[in-house]
Design a protein around this nucleic acid. Structure first.
Length: 578
RNA sequence: GGUCCCGUGGUGUAGCGGUUAUCACGUCUGCCUGUCACGCAGAAGAUCGCGAGUUCAAUUCUCGUCGGGACCGCCA
């Protein structure tokens, strides 16, 4: 093929026996037996064993150096087959060797065990870590998934359109990365948090179905599953309704997860769960439906109770069957977990031989016990856990965490399936305690359910948005909305969040202006690419699925980033460092 | 911004108020003609993150600082 190779290492076959081949790659391992030396040579296709009886020929090489070898393919003796290699029945007897680039003797870490190494070191030498088969395969999988997505989107009639990376800072949502302007003193560009406004403008521009594998930038603190830059499959459609987007989303997710994984995937249509129901039954807006436990509200039973912490507050319960005979230590661990998430404790009752047992039983009346059994369908051997707080939101959230913990602790979560659902009917506004006003709950460009009429007539807390999340195994995979394309409704929606008409005009001038010239109803969503790969690979860290990730603290030790710039550079963009 | 955890040869670790600082992998040297994460024998390699304090004595305890990570806040 080239002067470097006639074959790829992993592609040499038994049919090539007695052929002279040229191979290039990395020295994975050297085994010197004195008189016979073996070298494992690796390229992207796989590994093949090189052999020589001439101890001089390999004398200068080191592990992870790149070399080119020429030699004859030979069949191994049957006793010497290696089942772990694609090329395990053959080997190459080397008679010419060229060292292309010698690696230092001491590597920062061994390639095969890189996953055990401190992340900082791995990231600094990411190019070495990328030689590790597992990571390498993840990046290759990512490439195949991207190809699949593009093909799928094209088949569904979407066209790929690229939108600007250097754009205007926008006030809503996350903190922007800003870029100082050289030509315009004191002004700034910004990197997009998402192509949100551009894709809406594309709809106004008459593109019926748009998509893009779009980089998004958010200057916020990282997490295991959140980084400064990430990719979304951003798409938008015009003249459609919420269900139309669901169907596309379901098709995409279902096909990706069935194509690239053998785990069981929820069949379509995915269950729809309203935000309210999700918060009540699962204590989160991203429920893990693999967990069979359900939260139930039992506040009414305890309205008048003698047990003070439960009286007149929100009380949620989780019933777990067949665990009443767990030892005290087990329940103590649950209590410990509850305290660790800031709960004062956690009440529980076991139903054994028709009688309640547990620390709070003495506060219950016979009537309470009857109602509890009836309402929560308690069975012999069941245990009911109680989560109480005077703030309903906090109670729901803690109940959600307890539900997760119990699910994990009791191994109720099937690791072999992808359970999808669509959470919808998000509230349009949320009360901001600090500022004493209402903010947008989600995306401010979402259409309120019922349009302008709802905005004008309903109490602000009751206004719902055409806003939805796709959730898989407790992980938010995609957010989307039917957009608000009506100028009057948009003005009113912003007015309720405290924006004047003038502010809307200036801060969102592009949309505000565009919507004066015939806007189509439109809707879309944006699945997170990194999270898809994470789930497919069973990883819970985003940095395992990106080729060159930054550290969680936003630094790149390999590139030395962020870095200082010269005085001259600063001067040109009119920036002074304090 | 907050809470918690971590920092010991190249890598992963053990450990302790007084050690020659443990072990494994890797590296180097020697031996070995069939290994495949070869084996055997030997060697080198550590300012125990940095600074201060307590102490006769600190890698060990305390405080600070720097670096890293998990989570909360923030963020879809």
């Amino acid at each position: 093929m080239t002067k470097y190779r006639t074959h790829y290492c992993g592609k040499v076959k038994e049919k090539d026996i007695k052929q002279i081949v040229t191979l290039s790659g990395w020295v994975e391992n050297i085994r010197d037996h004195g008189g016979v030396i073996f070298v494992d040579l690796r390229d992207e296709s796989g590994t093949i064993q090189l052999v020589s009886n001439d101890d001089k020929i390999f004398s200068e090489i080191s592990k992870e150096s790149t070399i080119t070898v020429k030699g004859k393919v030979r069949k191994r003796k049957e006793d010497d087959y290696n089942d772990h290699l694609l090329t395990g029945t053959i080997e190459v007897v080397v008679d010419e060797l060229t060292i292309i680039s010698k690696a230092k003797n001491v590597l920062p870490f061994e390639i095969i065990t890189s996953h055990e190494v401190n992340e900082e070191v791995r990231l600094k030498y990411r190019y070495l870590d990328l030689r590790n088969k597992k990571i390498h395969d993840t990046i290759l999988l990512r490439s195949r998934v991207l190809k699949f997505i593009r093909q799928k989107m094209e088949n569904l009639g979407f066209c790929e359109i690229q939108t600007p990376i250097i754009t205007a800072s926008s006030p809503e949502g996350a903190r922007d990365f800003i870029i100082p302007s050289r030509k315009y003193h004191g002004k700034f560009y910004a990197l997009p948090q998402a192509p949100q406004i551009f894709k809406q403008l594309l709809m106004v521009g008459g593109f019926d179905r748009y998509y893009q594998i779009a980089p998004c930038f958010r200057d916020e603190d990282g997490r295991a599953d959140r980084t400064l830059e990430f990719y979304q499959l951003d798409f938008e459609m015009s003249f459609v309704e919420e269900e139309d987007v669901y169907r596309i989303g379901e098709e995409i997710f279902k096909e990706i997860f069935t194509t690239f994984s053998s785990k069981k995937v929820t069949s379509v249509p995915f269950p729809r769960i309203s935000y309210k129901e999700a918060m009540e039954k699962y204590g989160t807006d991203k429920p893990d439906l693999r967990n069979p436990l359900i939260i139930q509200d039992v506040s009414d039973i305890f309205q008048e109770t003698l047990f003070k912490p439960f009286r007149g507050v929100t009380v949620r319960s989780i019933v777990v069957d067949e665990i009443a005979n767990k030892p005290n230590s087990w329940f103590n661990e649950v209590v410990d977990y509850a305290t660790s998430i800031g709960m004062p404790g956690i009440g529980y009752l076991s139903l054994l031989e028709g009688k309640f047992k547990g620390p709070i039983d003495k506060f219950l009346t016979e009537e309470d016990r009857k109602k509890l059994i009836e309402k929560t369908n308690l069975k012999e051997g069941s245990v009911i856990f109680f989560i109480a707080d005077k703030e309903e939101k906090k109670c729901a959230k803690q109940a959600g965490l307890i539900r997760d913990e119990l699910g994990k602790k009791l191994e109720l979560i099937d690791p072999n399936c992808f359970e999808f659902c669509i959470v919808n009917d998000f509230p349009m506004y949320e009360y901001n305690e600090e500022e004493g006003k209402y903010d947008f709950g989600h995306n401010p460009f979402s259409m309120p359910k019922g349009g302008l009429t709802s905005l004008e007539k309903l109490p602000i807390e009751d206004i719902l948005a055409h806003q939805y999340d796709f959730v898989c195994n407790g992980c938010e995979m995609s957010s989307g909305a039917v957009r608000n394309h009506e100028i009057k409704t948009l003005e009113k929606a912003f007015a309720l969040a405290g924006y004047t008409q003038e502010e809307v005009k200036t801060k969102f001038q592009s949309l505000y202006n565009a919507f004066q010239y015939g806007a189509p109803p439109h809707a879309g969503m944006a699945p997170g690419i990194d999270r898809i790969i994470m789930l497919l690979k069973g990883e819970n860290n985003l940095r395992e699925v990106q080729a060159f990730p930054m550290s969680v603290s936003g630094q790149d030790a390999m590139m030395g980033c962020p870095s200082t710039v010269t005085e001259q550079q600063l001067k040109e963009v009119h920036i002074k460092i304090r």
